[in-house]
Design a protein around this nucleic acid. Structure first.
Lengths: 192, 192
DNA sequence: CGCGACGTTGATTTGCCTCAACGATTGTGG
DNA sequence: CCACAATCGTTGAGGCAAATCAACGTCGCG
């Protein structure tokens, strides 16, 4: 169960088996059915999650309309990082797109790790840095490219998303309406 | 010179005078004239900067057109954080809007600090977390609000920007053309 | 003084949205 | 296993916010 996690951690920091055991003793597992919510808007995100298998989507509501912030697949960490860091209520919902298994890392446990095993500060730093880089990529995509360019780039960079995710979620991830994505696809077909 | 910096650091981590001295011994100062560039697109951002006085803008070019990413004022850290972290060439330019003094923190020195004074890992983490939160706020502003709402929010949240920055830079920061900002302002005047 | 940078205003275009209708597919209860 | 509803993707008509193209007045500075 923890093998994937240990591999992933090893890429960031050097932990002894002892230390890893101490860390992983604070984790629990959670199983999600399709469409089940892991986090609901308005609650405080007190855990980070490591996806062992499956696929999650986070989204928020603006004017009664869902907007998809990101999709997450196996072997990744995630949380509503803003709420996780600040302790403010989340504005996000996190839902399983398919049957999904996650490991649960309580913020409290991570905060303890920072103190008990100072090496974890580096882990915390690397996670934050990666979160920044990921968000930056996404922001630049949304602000510098047209909807069609964003769609083409998504096909190129993350074919998994195209294959595994329903089209209306992809549209909302791209920041457009399902109708618009449908028209873009048609335009591309007519061309190519 | 370093007093502002020491105050700012103390809000994040507890450093002895010794440790602060060791840290600050690796810094240098740099003076910028109005319009002078601190970082040019295509170069690698090997330093972080602490603004002692003045005001900077970072921007990048898309289709021959400047887009303003952010403005920075006194007592803040900044860099092209993506390039700084990854070592890839920057896509940003950083320019002084007025006469500006900065402290220069070489990445190499910071990396040494991480090793020599492990407390600095916490500093690194907090900086990364703040960078994430700032970017997230900006992203949500750009994607969830209309141009007019963004402008009104900017007035409310960062009046300094409105007062100190030319209008066409503000437009590019808001993600619109100067003409559009001019029309928005007119519309607001006609109303109120 | 004369030039360039800046802000404003008008006319037109454009990319995406809204509203609406309609097949195809999926899922569910009888 | 079928009938019906809900969900999903497609397509058409029309609308709107901001972009584009263009012209013009003003200000500051070399």
């Amino acid at each position: 169960m923890y093998v994937q996690l240990q591999d992933q951690l090893r890429q960031m920091i050097n932990l002894s088996d002892e230390e890893f055991k101490h860390f992983s003793s604070g984790l629990t597992t959670q199983h999600l059915k399709r469409k089940e919510l892991l986090l609901r808007e308005g609650t405080i995100c007190k855990n980070a999650y490591f996806i062992v298998s499956g696929c999650l989507r986070y989204y928020y509501i603006v004017d009664g309309e869902e907007r998809t912030g990101q999709f997450f697949f196996e072997n990744g960490w995630f949380a509503d990082y803003r709420s996780f860091l600040t302790g403010e209520p989340s504005t996000q919902n996190i839902a399983a797109l398919v049957k999904t298994d996650v490991l649960v890392l309580p913020k409290r446990h991570l905060d303890n790790m920072f103190v008990e095993i100072p090496k974890f500060e580096k882990f915390g730093r690397l996670v934050a840095e990666n979160a920044y880089l990921g968000l930056r990529k996404r922001t630049e995509m949304l602000t510098n490219q047209t909807a069609e360019e964003r769609y083409l780039e998504l096909i190129k960079q993350r074919p998994k998303v195209i294959e595994r995710i329903p089209q209306h979620y992809i549209a909302s991830y791209l920041g457009i309406k399902p109708q618009s994505l449908s028209r873009i696809r048609k335009r591309l077909l007519d061309k190519g």
